[in-house]
């Protein structure tokens, strides 16, 4: 089991961590390039940068718009994110591993605080999941990964909490450590390719939206139709629905 734990925090960790960093960098660069190309193509080049920044900040800060609309949900979500970011980065045990590997370290949060933050993350994560299942509107816009992610994110926190409280985990310590390491690696591997990429893409979403408003809705479909690809499905749900009304869709597309 030791060998497996070593593998998990050696090559597997390096793979996951570097893939996360490079993958997120790639996501940012591709997004920016795509935004830039769209901007160069549209006729109206004006961009209200000030309002874009203001909008971005308004949605980022919990005290902003979301707070007024859904105070409970926004508080829970904010607390969840705090634990999610602070604990992995500032836990003493993690910092010690970094110190051993690369030779430098940074200040840690007290262990008591880390404990409470971990519990908070687990509980708020579950609360968010319940909210998603319970809310009719939220259920309607949820995909499979939206239901899986809370479990995936809570797993390393739960195992980490058990590991740091030896009296709870002594029997299966190494197995639990392996689970902890692997689940964390899995999270990092998936971050750049799933919705968690919002951790770096969020600042650009308002910008992308601002550019997107410059295009007529459904114009992509019309371009596709002009080029003779009208029967191909498009990823904009509304446009697809519109298309379904206008032209009879092949049965296999409907099945999907």
């Amino acid at each position: 089991m030791d060998t497996w734990v070593e593998f998990g925090r050696g090559p597997l960790f390096r793979l996951a961590f570097s893939l996360m960093l490079l993958g997120l960098l790639r996501a940012v660069l591709l997004t920016l390039q795509n935004i830039a190309e769209a901007w160069f193509r549209c006729a109206d080049k004006s961009l209200n940068i000030k309002s874009i920044v203001a909008e971005t900040l308004a949605w980022l800060l919990p005290a902003g718009r979301l707070w007024r609309k859904r105070p409970v949900y926004s508080t829970i979500s904010f607390l969840f994110h705090i634990g999610l970011i602070v604990v992995p980065l500032f836990l003493l045990a993690h910092i010690q591993l970094w110190r051993a590997a690369v030779g430098f370290a940074w200040p840690a949060i007290p262990a008591k605080a880390a404990d409470w933050l971990t519990l908070l993350t687990i509980l708020t994560g579950l609360a968010l999941l319940i909210a998603r299942i319970a809310g009719r509107r939220m259920r309607a816009i949820s995909r499979t990964q939206d239901y899986l992610w809370p479990f995936l994110l809570v797993l390393p926190f739960l195992s980490g909490y058990l590991l740091s409280h030896a009296s709870l985990s002594a029997a299966g310590y190494h197995r639990l450590m392996f689970i902890h390491v692997c689940s964390a690696a899995l999270v990092m591997l998936l971050i750049p390719f799933t919705k968690i990429a919002h951790c770096v893409l969020l600042p650009f979403s308002q910008l992308a939206t601002a550019i997107a408003w410059k295009f007529v809705p459904g114009s992509g479909d019309r371009v596709a139709a002009t080029l003779g690809y009208a029967e191909r499905p498009c990823w904009i749900p509304n446009a697809r629905a519109e298309q379904a009304v206008q032209t009879p869709t092949p049965p296999e597309v409907v099945a999907k």
């Binding site: 050696g10 090559p11 597997l12 390096r14 793979l15 996951a16 961590f17 570097s18 893939l19 490079l22 993958g23 790639r26 660069l29 591709l30 590997a101 750049p192």
Partner: peptide, 18 residues
């Protein structure tokens, strides 16, 4: 291409045994 680049780089980092 960027996906291939990023995956290969991550694999490289994993293979560089410390």
């Amino acid at each position: 291409y960027s996906l291939a680049f990023v995956l290969a780089a991550a694999l490289g980092f994993a293979l560089l045994a410390p």
